[in-house]
Design a binder for these strands. Structure first.
Length: 309
DNA sequence: TAGTATT
């Protein structure tokens, strides 16, 4: 018996590794009142596992989040927003690793072949940098027993169109990764946003080139945009809302007054690609955010001597 | 022959 899905509770997948729970909550708050937000982290290392749960007060807002945030590009990822299934033992460990696929095989082919044995949540074929299939992939079923059935039915078989034997097994979990990397082999940066405190500085791997806290930073993967004339009650989510339609965002930062926490009227958005950043500026400069406020939007580093105000 | 979806 399928348990009923709670349509106010969402799961967000494919989150950038550096995105914090606060940033996720901020982003999703743009669609309505969020009553809980939980970024799932590795128990030991506390690194983000790249997915989160967001629960809204209203189902209508959750639906809004699915329609407006699913497919949103953040850094190098395209996030997926969908209803969270009710948690149960039956849905755990239902991810399969498949190898020996013909090179023309797509994830749709996987769906067709594996769909006979259960409901597929997601499937994926891995490709190299040139877009050539690696001949391996993943199939995640709704239920563990469906995955087991697929292994029994398909492992070491030669389905139609296959030149080599198909191998189907349970995928490794994050803990049983590769063999000997002693200390964690994550190299991603934990973003340290301007927030008052973070207690993890000692364990944070730090790469100066990749850490883009400073608004002044601009390199080929990070184009810093300056936004002026924001309303006092602006939130990070406003910046996400405004800029996300134009392309991949690295991060956003709203500058606030120390005491009142109100927006000082300006902020920064870091975008990945020059073309998209340029296009965003083109469309958002002069944008009317209400109350007769026209945004001034430009690249941060264009040394204009703007002393207006 | 290896990404990361169940709190």
């Amino acid at each position: 018996m399928a348990e009923k899905i709670d349509q106010s509770n969402l799961i967000v997948n494919y989150l950038p590794q550096s995105m914090t729970q606060d940033e996720i909550q901020s982003l999703f708050s743009s669609c309505g009142k969020v009553i809980s937000c939980k970024l799932v982290r590795d128990k030991n290392s506390h690194h983000s596992l790249g997915y989160a749960f967001v629960k809204y007060e209203d189902v209508a807002d959750a639906n809004k989040a699915i329609s407006s945030l699913n497919g949103l590009r953040l850094q190098s990822k395209v996030i997926k927003v969908s209803y969270a299934r009710p948690s149960s033992a039956a849905i755990k460990n239902a991810n399969l690793y498949v190898s020996g696929l013909p090179l023309h095989y797509t994830h749709q082919d996987l769906d067709n072949l594996f769909g006979q044995y259960g409901a597929i949540i997601t499937s994926k074929v891995l490709y190299d940098g040139n877009g050539v299939s690696r001949g391996v992939g993943f199939v995640r079923y709704d239920k563990r027993n469906e995955a087991e059935a697929a292994i029994l039915a398909l492992n070491k078989t030669l389905p139609n169109g296959f030149q080599a034997q198909l191998t189907v097994k349970f995928a490794n979990t994050p803990n049983q990764k590769s063999q000997s990397s002693e200390n964690s082999d994550y190299t991603d940066i934990q973003q340290s946003y301007g927030g008052p405190m973070r207690h993890q500085s000692s364990s944070v791997r730090y790469s100066p080139m990749a850490a883009n806290d400073s608004p002044a930073n601009s390199n080929s993967n990070n184009w810093c945009i300056f936004i002026y004339n924001l309303p006092q009650d602006a939130e990070d989510s406003l910046l996400y809302q405004l800029f996300a339609p134009y392309g991949a965002i690295n991060n956003v930062k709203l500058i606030r007054e120390l005491n009142s926490k109100k927006c000082k009227g300006y902020g920064f958005v870091n975008m990945v690609n020059y073309e998209e950043a340029y296009n965003a500026i083109l469309h958002l400069n002069g944008y009317d955010v209400g109350e007769n406020r026209l945004l001034q939007v430009s690249f941060k580093n264009n040394s204009k001597k703007t002393s207006n105000r």
